[in-house]
Amino acid sequence: MRTPAIVGLILASLLLCFSVAADAAINLSSTRVVLAAPAKEGSLQLQNSSQEEFMLQAWVEENAAGEVPFAVTPSLERLRSGEKKTLRILYYGEGLPTDKESVFWLNVQEVPQKTKVENVLQIAVRQRLKLFYRPAGLPGRAEDAARELKWRLSGKGLEVYNPSHFHVSFGSVVVRKGSETYSAAIDMVAPGSTFAAELPGLVEDVRSGDLKVEFQVIGGFGGMAKYDSTISG
């Protein structure tokens, strides 16, 4: 038997001896955080729902411009079984646009304590959720932004334009043509921006009048709301 084959068998055998626990033990009170000015602070409730003790790490990622105008406290904390904590997100008070919403990623990572049991592979599980900073005095309302979206066909794809000052996050986007449906992979569209997605299987000569778009939007508290709209050519 060749050496690579022997090594492969050994690795496979070792992997079978390990148990992997990758489910999140720390429950979060929300799937997103909205920090609305003039408030300078937002919060997120955490609870360790497992029987084990974990070390909690939390931080905000840089945006495309390399900015992180937030501090998270506690950024490193021990969380015992069943214990609850409040994560505070503090805004420095400057550096972000005042005419539109901004978005960042908040990370919550749980690091398990060293186990006394042998042959157990431990994994640090990280949860990522969107952190929105909403300036004061923006025109319109965030909950109305989904109704203002403009949809159009672009070749064999779908474009959505967001004329509002707020981000719109999607749970699903489906284009319907009679009994046929086509899914579009659109996660979020930023204020004043256009996002384009492919529609696999859609024929090139289809007319926009034959189509409508049905979509679900994720609200500020993580709930889903259903909408539908016409599609222009």
Rank of each mutant, 00 (worst) to 15 (best):
R32V: 09
I89P: 03
K116Y: 10
F166W: 09
L96I: 11
P200V: 11
E77T: 00
L199D: 04
W59P: 00
A71H: 12
P112E: 10
R126C: 09
K85N: 02
F166T: 04
N162L: 03
R134Y: 03
L76G: 10
L79G: 07
R207M: 08
F54N: 10
L16A: 14
A24G: 12
G209L: 09
S179K: 14
E83A: 15
Q216R: 12
A21F: 15
I26L: 06
L16E: 11
R147W: 07
T98Q: 08
E61R: 04
I231V: 15
V120E: 06
G140N: 09
A64K: 14
R147Q: 12
G140F: 09
E101V: 06
E118H: 14
L129R: 03
T98C: 05
Y227W: 02
V189G: 01
V117Y: 13
L211D: 04
N119Y: 05
I6C: 06
E204T: 04
P69E: 00
L149T: 15
R147T: 13
R126M: 12
V203E: 12
E83S: 13
R2Y: 10
V33H: 01
R32Q: 13
A5D: 11
S13F: 15
R78P: 02
N107T: 02
R32K: 06
K150Y: 08
F221M: 07
V168C: 04
N162V: 00
V203Y: 04
V174W: 02
E62V: 12
I89R: 01
V108Q: 06
V213E: 04
L28Y: 03
A142E: 10
Y227V: 02
Q113G: 09
L153A: 11
V117S: 14
S232G: 12
V33W: 04
L79S: 06
V206R: 01
S13C: 13
V203C: 08
V203D: 13
R78Q: 10
K100L: 02
R141G: 08
K177F: 03
M188P: 05
V108R: 03
Q57E: 10
V120Q: 08
L16W: 14
G233K: 13
G192W: 12
F70Y: 00
M188A: 13
F54P: 00
Q216G: 15
S43K: 14
